[in-house]
Simulated assay, not measured.
Amino acid sequence: MITVIIPARYASSRYPGKPLAELDIGGGVRRSLIELTWRAALEVPEADAVYVATDDDGIAEAARGFGAEVIMTSGSCRNGTERCADALERAGLAPEIVVNLQGDAPLTPPWFLSALIAAMRADPTLDAATPVLRCEPATLALLQEDRRAGRVGGTTAVFDRAGRGLYFSKEVIPFVEGRAFSAGEVPVFHHVGVYAYRPETLRRYQDWPEGPLERLEGLEQLRFLENGARMQCVEVDSRGRVFWELNNPQDVARIEAVLKEQRT
Rank of each mutant, 00 (worst) to 15 (best):
G103S: 12
Y51I: 01
W244H: 14
T125W: 07
E171N: 02
A118M: 02
T155E: 03
R230I: 00
F181I: 08
A128L: 13
V70A: 09
A162N: 13
V186A: 03
V4N: 04
V44N: 02
L23Y: 00
T54A: 11
G17Q: 01
P249G: 14
P95E: 01
P95Y: 02
H191A: 14
D24N: 13
A162F: 06
A118G: 09
W244C: 09
P212N: 12
A60M: 03
G67H: 08
S182Q: 10
L166G: 09
V70S: 06
D86M: 04
A115I: 08
E43D: 15
G65V: 03
L42S: 14
L246K: 07
E214T: 14
L133Y: 15
E35K: 09
R263K: 04
R230S: 00
K170H: 11
R204K: 12
V98F: 01
A41H: 02
V192Y: 01
I255Q: 07
R148F: 03
V188K: 08
P109A: 04
E46T: 12
W111Y: 04
D57S: 04
E245H: 15
D48Q: 14
A257T: 05
T3A: 02
R90E: 04
E256A: 13
A138R: 13
A122Q: 10
L42W: 10
A21M: 03
A183C: 03
R64D: 03
Q206F: 10
V99T: 09
L216R: 10
Y205W: 12
P45K: 08
G178S: 00
R241P: 08
E200W: 09
V186Q: 00
G26W: 01
F224S: 00
C233A: 09
A162D: 10
I255H: 06
A118P: 00
R241G: 05
Q262R: 10
V99F: 07
V242A: 13
F112S: 04
A149T: 10
M72C: 08
E245A: 14
N79D: 15
T130I: 12
P110L: 02
Q102S: 11
V152N: 08
G75I: 02
P249K: 12
P137E: 10
A8Q: 10
F181C: 05
